[in-house]
Design a protein around this nucleic acid. Structure first.
Length: 267
DNA sequence: ATGGTGGCACCGCCA
């Protein structure tokens, strides 16, 4: 059986409660099948579930008081939901896996790493390796899988506004490129880059601390939509929607969207 | 020049 086109979006909201005025209208206007969110920064008991349901979306989430937190809003009810990696520390507020009729989704908030000399940077590199094992354990490169989210890696010079200056940042350094490449080598394609080969200046993150960063083009592409090859072959397009970054009280990230055609049943 | 802003916590930590 076939279905109509399938659209998925990813958005690091930097607090879901502080971004509802952006997220809910965006959902109503854009009607994606799935919206993956990161850095929700809210305990589950306080997650604004009702607002999503009133907009016609199911929503699943896992988060703590202050840091991290992930959520997936979807038209269809997600099945086989699980949180976190398989081994400890599972970081259940950084990974959600779920399944829909035509596709599986893994929503990710990969550790940032703080600094190359910080133990958190080794933790980040290990996280990529653990994630590769996790993906290999639960999926096959032949099936329809989307891995998306804030991966805290800008892979190529065109993914940052000043590659010379930024080289050595925890999101833009050879060790992290290697970890990211090894993950993708399992069988994941950068769908956004597929549709914009060699095109610089397409960013989904603009640091709050840089004045007028977006207007000055001082961004990064650290948010990604990766899919298995068969699914990537059906992708119709991908884009970054900058409007949420222009809104009142924006997140420092904005929304990335990808669209796919005629998905087959995954089971 | 070693800042800047923003979120949530609580009087600092993380991005």
């Amino acid at each position: 059986m076939l279905m109509k086109t399938f659209r998925i979006a990813t958005y690091n909201v930097n607090s879901i409660r502080s971004r509802l005025h952006i997220v809910i209208p965006w959902l109503r206007e854009n009607q994606p099948d799935v919206l993956c969110m990161q850095e929700t920064k809210v305990e589950d008991e306080k997650f604004p579930r009702g607002e999503f349901e009133e907009a016609g979306y199911h929503v699943i989430f896992k988060g703590g008081k202050q840091y991290n937190g992930v959520a997936v809003a979807s038209r269809e009810e997600p099945k086989e939901v699980s949180w976190g990696l398989d081994d400890d520390p599972a970081d259940s507020d950084r990974l959600i896996r779920c399944k829909f009729s035509h596709v599986s989704v893994v929503n990710l908030y990969i550790p940032q790493g703080r600094g190359r000399d910080d133990p958190q940077f080794q933790y980040k590199l290990q996280w990529f390796e653990r994630l590769r094992g996790y993906i290999a354990r639960h999926f096959s490169p032949d099936e329809s899988l989307i891995c998306c989210g804030d991966m805290n890696v800008a892979r190529d010079p065109i993914d940052v506004h000043d590659p010379k200056k930024l080289l050595g940042h925890v999101d833009f350094t050879p060790e992290v490129w290697e970890a990211f490449d090894h993950l993708k080598s399992w069988g994941l394609v950068d769908v956004f880059r597929k549709h914009h080969p060699d095109k610089p200046g397409l960013y989904a993150f603009f640091d709050y601390r840089v004045p007028n960063a977006m207007d000055r083009g001082l961004g990064w592409r650290v948010d990604h939509i990766l899919t298995t090859r068969p699914l990537a072959d059906t992708s119709l397009g991908a884009f970054i929607d900058l409007e949420p970054r222009r809104a009142e009280k924006p997140s420092d990230h904005t929304v990335m969207v990808a669209e796919f055609a005629a998905l087959h049943d995954s089971l």
